[in-house]
Amino acid sequence: MELPIVGAAQATARVDSTRGGGGSGVARHVLLIEDETNIAEALRFILERDGWQVSALGDGAQAVAMVRGLRPDLVILDLMLPGADGLEILAALRADPATAALPVLMLTAKGQARDRAAAEAAGVSRFMAKPFANAEIVAAASALVPG
C-alpha cells in the first residue's frame, strides 16, 4: 500500500527499523508522531535499542491515515503538532473501531493538569510530560505493549 509521504520537517520521518531485539519473533511496532526532529531521533534510538520497530512521523495531518496503514502496536503522540492537534488525532483514533483499543502514549511539553485531564478524557492510555527520562519512556512503552 502506498502511504502519503509527509512534509519537510522530517528528514528522518519514516525510518523503519528491522533491528529486532531479543529474538522473540516479530518486533513490537511503535509509530512515533513528534514534530521535534531531535527528540524523535533520540526516541527512535532508545526504542530500537529496546527491541522496537520504530516508524516516525513529524506532522499531525497524516497521522490517522498512517496509523490505519501501518497498524502499529503502540502510538507515541505529541500533544502539540503542526497540522493537527494531538487530542484531535487521539479522538479520531478512538472513534474508529479498528484503533479504538490501540495503546496511545501522549507526550507534551506542558505537563499541566489541564492538558492531562483533556488527554485522559480523550482516552489516552498514558501521559508523559517533557522533559522525560529515556528509561521512563522505555518502561512506559513496555508496560503498554509487553514484549
Partner: peptide
C-alpha cells in the same frame, strides 16, 4: 516555555543516550 521545554527534552534524552 514550550520552546525551552522542548529543547531541554531533546538535550536530556540525547545526552543520556
Amino acid at each position: 516555555l514550550h520552546e525551552v521545554l522542548s529543547a531541554v527534552s531533546a538535550v536530556r534524552s540525547t545526552a543520556a543516550i
